[in-house]
Design a protein around this nucleic acid. Structure first.
Length: 867
RNA sequence: GCCCGGGUGGCGGAAUUGGUAGACGCGCUGGAUUCAAAAUCCAGUGAUAGCAAUAUCGUGUGGGUUCGAUUCCCACCCCGGGUACCA
């Protein structure tokens, strides 16, 4: 009888479900191991064969760890808030929760077919009130915290208030935007409105008017990582810069720690590099330029303070705060025309026309703090309002953009490094000897940087400064299908709903999911969306304080979901904490996190950020969420194109499973190539793994009957088995699943040739294969008479002694070319081999009495005689 | 432009530390079995020359280090990813 995968797979699918074979225990004496997948967004399209690739790999590893005696947490859930469900709702009028529930059901069916060892009892759904109640709770914590740069950690806002009460804000060193200083007495004289306005500028979750990415087509703001080439990541609509009042998270305060933390985690180098570039650290100095005949100062950031003698003009971003006061009467018209022009250019136009040089002179002059020279102040949109101070000292000899600008507007270009050629363009050399630079002449670049900064700091004209590209993350969205903010407003000041009342803040029912006629977010349509703090309840509009109308972005739930899985039981039963101390102490960090590299600057950064935040406040005992991360590649269509409903090239896993079985699908996906590689789906190849499974099945059977002997094994059989144990164990430990599949294909072929049907060989072989192909091995395991699941079987132990050989064939080569081979006993030492080689008849014949310079012996490989 | 990866048969890919390149699978060729097919099994399969043993060449290109290089170093070409007025 041939292997009947349909019947066998159905049997074990049901058995695993009823026995709850893979549910993890929080009380266990075994060591813990946490294998996590990036949970899917349940879209209407269902899964294609590319989606489960990472899940299969992590499932294999989770099964391996179980066999090795670990208590394994391997959960799954749904990242269910988001735009597609909402857009579908706008089109059809169906509530997003209805379509989301349908999609989840479909996903579950598809996932179950593949035979994953997920602990479904711990499933999470970010859009369920029981879950998002805790997302809201974390937001409340973010709101009631500030970043203390002196202790370099997050602290409760109470410690800031205490500092204000004692010393005002002059000695508080925080990661907030600069605000006016005040004394302890001032603070005490402020009313609540004033105090709260000031505190808002310090909070980790704060509301402020900033330049944000506004997408008119989606009707919402977007975070930087959700914008690709000036277009929205979702839908590809144009995005423009707009100054708006929005919630933001102060992730920039964590920039240095997010960068440093990369050194402590085992993540792919390429991914760490992407995060490093995104965080974008640069060392340099902040320098103040006094404006001539004015009290105003322009602060600039530069990484090259040594070139300050070459700074022949200044450029401000058109949005810079000082533009108004610096513009002289004569230049007024000119400047405002330019500001209007640059406002009218969309982000995309600016990118497309990057080479176009534009700008306007303000009429003012700044005084170079080192040379005392007067330099003109210009505005131009090649200087970004959002980076550094929004102003630069332009050094056209060293910076190409400054050079282009200087050439176009006929401004002076002064070389400041020996040998600099500025006739054709800027000459951006990183080392050399300074010239035309007063007291820096003759110094090297690195020396000059140090001396300028020292001088600036001594004369209080500037400071050493490290700048980061990482911007604070805009956290509010003008959408319906997301977590509502637990925030209400009194006199325009945000207040949080009390922690114990958060379960009141559920998404309100509304009749349409579009923005209101007055341009408010969809929640503006809710008839009952006011808060009564005394009653602790949502009340009819007009009878309480208005609630915030925004919702949180898609990544709000996904940045902490991994902690929720640590709690036992269904979401609604998981107690009064987002995660218990006992659970988080037992499971600790994620040991293996599997997911796509496309989340490098989004989810994977926020995930690390929120972990550091919760660590600072003492809720969790670690400040990096995942020790090891593996990025699975993408499976493309056979022509290398992306698999998508749009291109009609989707291969459905259900169809593959119906034809070849789930185990064949699993083996085949692993066999396609290294896990992290992008690769096209190959239909032909699956025949190979189907053939392999039939061979495996036949190894246990004689005709229809199970045919297993209790004889002891011979050397050849033991050698075959132990070769396989060694290779498969090594390969799986380094996540090389394609070669581990090869290894047991080799073993099955060898044992078939040896006509081996011995229990002592086949039983451990089955365990080796069980992680990759769980259904067939479970069936064989039961046929062998075992009462427990194969996932509880112990991983076989490798024994070197079975691989030892009696003799080794040494290829003998002279000057790198092989001449002949010599059979020698395997246990000879290097000296003995050399003696044998030199005494050998053929060697003597070849040497003709000459003495070789050296004889190089590489054990088991080759003997090289060098003349 | 800058920063990371990578380039091996007809194809997907092995080669873990510098040590017999091409494991394993697909495809292809020939054979066995069969009325026939499917399935299965056996043999072959980097290129060139040869009946063969064998020889020569061969890991993007050119050079270098080494007894020995897919692996290390230098220069270049090509492909993939990230990022981009970041001062």
């Amino acid at each position: 009888m041939e292997y009947d995968f349909l019947t066998v797979e159905k049997k074990w699918r049901e058995r695993w479900a009823t026995d709850q074979t893979f549910s993890a225990e929080n009380n266990s004496t075994k060591p813990s191991y946490y294998v996590l997948d990036m949970f899917p967004y349940p879209s209407g399209a269902g899964l294609h064969v590319g989606h489960p690739l990472g899940y299969i790999a992590s499932d294999i590893y989770a099964r391996l760890k179980r066999s090795q005696g670990f208590n394994v947490l391997h959960p799954m859930g749904y990242d269910a808030f988001g735009l597609p469900a909402e857009q579908y709702a706008i089109q059809t009028g169906q509530h997003p929760s209805v379509t989301t529930a349908q999609n989840i059901e479909r996903y579950r069916e598809q996932l179950d077919l593949i035979g994953f060892s997920f602990d479904w009892s711990r499933q999470v759904n970010t859009s369920s009130p029981e879950f998002y109640r805790w997302t809201q709770w974390i937001f409340v914590k973010l709101f009631h915290s500030w970043y203390n740069k002196s202790s370099n950690k997050t602290e409760p806002i109470e410690s800031l208030i205490e500092a204000f009460e004692h010393k005002g804000n002059t000695e508080v060193f925080s990661a907030n935007d600069p605000i006016d200083s005040f004394t302890a007495a001032d603070w005490k004289s402020f009313d609540e409105h004033q105090k709260r306005s000031i505190l808002l500028k310090y909070r980790i979750a704060y509301r402020a008017e900033t330049f944000v990415n506004w997408c008119p087509a989606l009707g919402t703001v977007l975070a930087n990582d959700e914008v690709v080439n000036g277009m929205s990541e979702r839908g590809g609509h144009p995005v423009e810069q707009k100054k708006m009042m929005q919630w933001s998270l102060r992730i920039s305060a964590f920039a240095q720690r997010l960068r440093d933390g990369l050194e402590t985690i085992d993540w792919p180098d390429s991914l760490k590099e992407i995060q490093r570039n995104w965080i974008g650290r640069s060392e340099g100095a902040e320098v103040s330029f006094q404006i001539k005949n004015s009290r105003d100062k322009i602060k600039v950031f530069t990484t090259r303070p040594d070139t300050i003698f070459g700074a022949t003009f200044m450029v401000l971003a058109p949005e810079h705060d000082l533009v108004g006061s610096l513009t002289t009467r004569e230049q007024q018209k000119h400047v405002s025309e330019y500001i209007n022009y640059s406002k009218g250019r969309s982000e995309r136009e600016r990118m497309a026309e990057a080479k176009k040089i534009t700008g306007a002179f303000t009429g003012s002059y700044a005084i170079n703090p080192i040379t005392g020279e007067e330099v003109p102040v210009w505005i131009a949109d090649y200087v970004l309002a959002g980076y550094g101070t929004g102003a630069v000292m332009a050094v056209p000899s060293g910076d190409q953009r400054d050079w282009d600008f200087a050439s176009h507007f006929d401004l002076p270009i002064v070389p400041v490094i020996e040998g600099q050629d500025v006739s054709e363009g800027a000459d951006d050399r990183k080392d050399g000897i300074l010239i035309n630079s007063g007291f820096l002449n003759g110094k090297s670049v690195s020396q000059a940087i140090e001396e300028v900064i020292e001088r600036l700091e001594k004369e209080k004209l500037g400071t050493r400064k490290i700048n980061f590209k990482l911007r604070d993350a805009v956290f509010s969205r003008q959408r319906y299908w997301g977590e509502p903010f637990p925030i209400y407003y009194r006199d325009g000041i945000p207040y949080t709903v009390d922690e114990d009342k958060l379960d009141q803040i559920k998404l309100p029912e509304i009749d349409h999911f579009k923005p209101t006629e007055t341009g408010e977010p969809p929640l503006g349509r809710a008839k009952k969306w006011n808060w009564d703090p005394k009653a602790g309840a949502i009340v009819e509009n007009g009878s309480g304080y208005p609630m915030d109308l925004n919702t949180m972005p898609g990544w709000a739930g996904s940045n902490w979901y991994y902690l929720r899985y640590m709690m036992e039981g269904k979401t609604e039963d998981r107690g009064k904490e987002f995660v218990s101390k006992e659970a988080v102490n037992y499971w600790n960090q994620v040991d293996l996190y599997m997911g796509g590299a496309e989340h490098a600057t989004g989810h994977l950064l926020y995930f690390r950020f929120i972990t550091k935040f919760l660590y600072d406040l003492g809720y969790i005992p670690f400040d990096e969420p995942a020790k090891k991360l593996i990025n699975q590649g993408m499976i493309q269509a056979e022509d290398g194109q992306k698999m998508s409903k749009r291109y009609g090239n989707v291969v459905n896993p259900d169809d593959v499973i119906a034809e070849h079985g789930a185990d064949a699908l699993r083996l085949h996906e692993m066999f396609l190539g290294p896990i992290e590689m992008h690769k096209p789906w190959n239909t032909k190849g699956i025949e190979g793994v189907s053939k392999f499974m039939r061979k495996l099945w036949r190894l246990f059977h004689m005709g229809e009957e199970l045919s297993i002997s209790d004889e002891t094994a011979n050397i050849a059989e033991l050698k075959s088995l132990h070769k396989c144990i060694q290779k498969v164990s090594d390969d799986m430990e380094r996540f090389s699943f394609n070669t581990s599949v090869s290894a047991f294909m080799v073993a099955v072929n060898e044992l078939t040739d040896l006509k081996c049907n011995k229990r002592v060989i086949l039983e451990p072989l089955t365990i080796l294969i069980s992680c990759h192909a769980p259904h067939i091995t479970e069936e064989l395991w039961e046929k062998l008479g075992h009462k427990t699941s194969i996932s509880e079987a112990q991983w076989p132990v490798f024994d070197q002694k079975y691989l030892k050989e009696d003799s080794i064939n040494y290829p003998i080569s002279f000057n790198g070319k092989t001449r002949f081979q010599l059979q020698l006993p395997a246990d000879l030492g290097k000296d003995e081999i050399e003696k044998e080689v030199m005494a050998n008849e053929e060697t003597v014949k070849w040497l003709q009495g000459k003495v070789p310079k050296k004889v190089i012996i590489v054990p088991k490989r080759i003997v090289n005689v060098v003349m």
